[in-house]
Every structure is written in C-alpha cells, then in structure tokens.
Write a protein that binds this DNA or RNA. Sequence first.
DNA 1: TTGTAAGCGTTATCAC
DNA 2: GTGATAACGCTTACAA
Lengths: 331, 331
Amino acid sequence: MAEATIRDVARRAQVSIASVSRALNGLGNVRQETRERVMAAAAELGYVPHAGARSLSLARAHAVGVVLPDLHGEFFSEFVRGMDREASRRGYVLLLSNIHDESEQAANALRAMRGRVDGLIVMAPHLSAGMLQSALPPTLPSLFINGPEEIDDRPTVRLDNVAAMEAMVAHLVAGGRKRIVHIAGPEGNVDARERVEGYRAAMARHAPGIEPVVLAGDFSEEAGEAAAHAIRANAIACDAVFAANDMMAIGCLQALRNGGADVPGEIAVAGFDDVPLARYLGLTTVRVRIAEMGARAIERLIDILEGGPADQRAERHDAELVVRGTTAARD
Amino acid sequence: MAEATIRDVARRAQVSIASVSRALNGLGNVRQETRERVMAAAAELGYVPHAGARSLSLARAHAVGVVLPDLHGEFFSEFVRGMDREASRRGYVLLLSNIHDESEQAANALRAMRGRVDGLIVMAPHLSAGMLQSALPPTLPSLFINGPEEIDDRPTVRLDNVAAMEAMVAHLVAGGRKRIVHIAGPEGNVDARERVEGYRAAMARHAPGIEPVVLAGDFSEEAGEAAAHAIRANAIACDAVFAANDMMAIGCLQALRNGGADVPGEIAVAGFDDVPLARYLGLTTVRVRIAEMGARAIERLIDILEGGPADQRAERHDAELVVRGTTAARD
DNA sequence: TTGTAAGCGTTATCAC
DNA sequence: GTGATAACGCTTACAA
C-alpha cells in the first residue's frame, strides 16, 4: 500500500536499482531496451521519486525557504506569486514561514529550515541585524529583501525608497506645494526609516529653506487620522501630506475631508504602496512592483545556489510614481 | 565549514551518536551527566538537526503541502496566515505551490510534493475531480478546501455557500426587495456553482413566484459593469443585484450609479467576500472567515496525520452577513 | 545506561 | 551496460 520505491521498479523491470536511477535520470549509459523496461515499470507502478531521499543523497533539496513578516493584502499575495512563478520555473519548491516578532519562535522557524532548503529568502524589515545574524544558519545561502542595511555582506534586493521619496516630493513641489509633512512608519522598520531619510533629502533638495516636519506613525489608518488631527489642532502650516504608506494616507485623507479640509485644493495627500483602495479613492501614491522583486530575489538566489559567480550585490528596485487626484496641482 | 552533524556532536561529547540522538530528543534513558555533555557540545557547535535526514528516518516530514489557485488580496494572505499559525503551533512547516490550470505543470507540482510532505491541503475550485484524482498521490492524506463535490471520500472544509446565499436573499427580501438578480461567477468554479444553486433555492423559498434571473460573469469588475449595462439596456425589472463576489458587485454598483440609478433607493447591490474595498464603498456583502478555515483545515489534516480517528467529514463553515449601506431598506 | 548497526530511498563510485 | 555497495544524517532495535 505504501508508495512504490526505486526497488519496486527495479524488481519489476528485472534490473538493478542503479540502472533504474540511471534510466529515470536520463543518464547516457543505459541500453535503450533497459531504459524502456524501466520506464514501463515505473509507469505501471505510478512511481514518483521520493524527494526527501533524493535530497539527502544529492545534498540539494531543490527548495528555498521564504521567511516573511505579517504582510497584508495584495502585497503578500503578489510577492509570493512572483516568487512561486520563478521558483517553479527553475524546478524549486517554496517553503513558507511567517515570522511575527523576535521571539524564540522566530529563531525556531529559521532552524526548522535546516536540511529542508538550499537557501533562504528573508524579508524582515522589522528584525534586528543581530537577531538575524545569530539565528541564521551561517552556511545557508540567503538573500535579504529590504533587510537591515548593516548586513552588507549578503546579497539583497531592496526597494529604492530614497528615489521614490525624491520623485514624490519633486512631483508635489512641481504642483506648487513645498510645505510637505511626512507621516512616518514604525520605528525599527527599515523601509520606514529610509523613507524618512529620503523625505529629508528630497526636501533639502527641492524645498530648501523649508523645515521638514515628520509626524510619528505606525502604518495604521488610525495613525493617519491622528496625524490629520495633529495638523489641524496645532495649525501646522502645510499644503501637502506625504505618508509612508497608503493606509496612513487614507486615514489622513478621510479625517482631513471630514474636518472640512479641501483635498487637493487646500492640501494634497500622497501615500506609498498603491493598495487597491488607493485607486478608488484617487490617492496619489507610489507603486511597488513586488511580484517582480520576489521573482528577481528567487532568480538571484538560485543562481547563487547553482554556482553562479559570487553575488552579494545590493540590488535596488525602482518604484513607480502613480499620480491621481489627491495631488492635483493648484490652479 | 559544513554544518555540524550528529557525529560531530558525538565526537565532541565523547559519546555515541545514539546517545546524542536520545539526549537531544529527550528520551528518558540517558544519564543526566551524559545529557548535559551532549547539550553543551551541541550548543558549542551550533548544531541543528538535519530535517531531511530526520524525516527520511522517521518517515515523517513534519511538513504539509498547500496547493492553491491564483488567489488575490486579503483572501490569499489571510488564508496562508491562518494555516501558517496553526501549522507552526503544531510543529509543522508549510510547502506552498500555486497551480494555475490543469496543465502538466499542475501534475508536476503535485508530484514534487512526494517525499517532502506528510499531507496536502488542496484548494482548487477550478480543477476537475478527474484531474485531481489522477494526479494526487493516492496514499498521501489530503484535505480539500471548497473542492469538487464529487470527491466525497476525502475530508473537506467547505464554505457554506448555500446558507450564505440564503441569508443574503432573506435580508434583501426583508428589506422589501424580491426581484433579485444574481451575477454568477465563472463556469467550472465550484463556489460559483454553489452560489447559483443557493440563490435559486433561496429565491424559491423567499420570493416564490418570482422568476430567478442569473447573469453570466467571471468574478471580474468588468463583468459587474457589463451586468449593470445589461440590466439597464434590457430593462430587466429588478430591485436588487446580488453578485457572486465583491468585485463584480463593485463594478455593477459603479456602473449603475454612473448610469444615474439610485442605489440603494431604486436598486440594492450586494456582493460576496468582504474585500477591504467593500467597507469603503459601504457595500453589503458576505464575509468569509478564511483564516479560520485555513487553520481548521490544517488542524484536521494534522490530526489525521498523527493518527486521530478516521475523519472524512465534509465540514461546512458559515459565512457572516455584513450589512451596509447598499442594501438599506426602502422607505 | 550506552554503543553497534540496520535501515529510511536515493545517487554515485566502483568493479565487472 | 550493468550491478553491488557505500554514502547522505538521522532514529531505533538489539546487544552489551
């Protein structure tokens, strides 16, 4: 009743298991007739090679581990889809693991990968470099997506946050707005940090003399609302709000409008991510081609696994400015 | 440079590999002092057991394969999150595989699972029973989510589409609307089919004498728009549209309103899924607790794997009616 | 309590 | 060309 093994095929084809292996793997040194007998026997038994045994013998699992934080919505599905597409194209399988925090659980999840995968894709904008360094099997090839900048001896794929911020600020300034407020993402998040920096740099460049204003946030819609209230209550003089993600931008947008503000007449609002909702609300934002980043990460990792040239480049992927109604130029 | 193996630990602790295995796995018959020596050696070497070898020896991979169609948005991420949570709680790992169609690729993806996983979760509302039966390793325990009804000898977790349709139709009728049109999902999709049936049954029950009207659709926003145009152009007499999913409902809603119709005054609109957008548009819909279904599927599958009682029940999960503005009762 | 050795299902290195 | 057989890293009788 158990699945047929290579032995069963050998017995049925009246050859040794060595010949079965050779025939099935298409090695040259097998007589045509032998090969056919093996193929027939395998087909009759419905034989499928045991991937576990295979990988133990070959010391290659043809699997890559994917370690992710709690992602939501399109972002997660697109990312996984991009990786899955490329992985299966190259004959690899994906082992998925969500990591919620820096707990012992996280370290366990990483350990559980040992002996199952040939390499790791790690997306962990919220994990510290120290934790990663200590919990990652040192000999396991791994590629970081938007990982901590301190880890610079490993290959990475990173979103070019700075360029994206620059583009958006330039767009706002071109529309006649210079008093731009930034709502930041959570502390400790790499993307959030880079966006603040990018914002400051872009302001220095495009709106010299204007003091940058950064309001604290945590990527939640409520944080956006709170920011809107702060702006109104403290009478922060501004003609644009650029949030570190769409949900905050949306929360802010709604709160501003509910408070009677005219968007975009009086104040512009922009976000980051291009969630589906952004399109419906006409929110100007930045689109991340996350499926493409995922596919590229897998591609590079597998290239490394299959002995390509040493690759520890920090590859940056451009985001795309998506201009909609909430930042329409005034007049 | 390679990762430490059990032999290295044994050598360093001056014991046999058998003792290392026993100590590490917490078996009773190990002297306290030996156990400590082993633990120390393992820690010093940063030893992590090789999951592949372990599973070959144990004939258990502590992994489950998850086979999914192209899912989008929250649905996918919530589903995977629910499964991941439960799986990691029970010490299992998830192997993910997207299946796009009935091609050879799909069969390969299924085969690639052999020898890597102990069981399979299959969500395939678009795959035929025949294809599944033939490509699935017959001895691999598997649980279907919203699978074809013909496969009734395997455990399944299914959304109770019929009950959901019934609840929504009852809600619409209670609001004074009986001429309810249904926009269907793609042919060949199990959920779509069940929703049509549920719709018909509910109409027969709550709006006897009224002829059910089913418009063809494919789950896309455009299909919803097309349905709206068909309703206007052909002057289909109706006071409610109930689409098989939110995207079609949204497309229909927008097209109706753009065409000058008063929703909900003149005509109500309802969807299915409760995508994030639905909340923003005030769309009445049906919420699927997909994370819960995923977790439950994993739970049952692992119970089976770990020798629980034979379980081939078809478990149905209730969806939740979410009433919003687009179906407000008239007057 | 501990060690030796067989076995899990493959691939690869040898002889023949 | 083909068949024994030793790995791969682990668990687990069975002996000691």
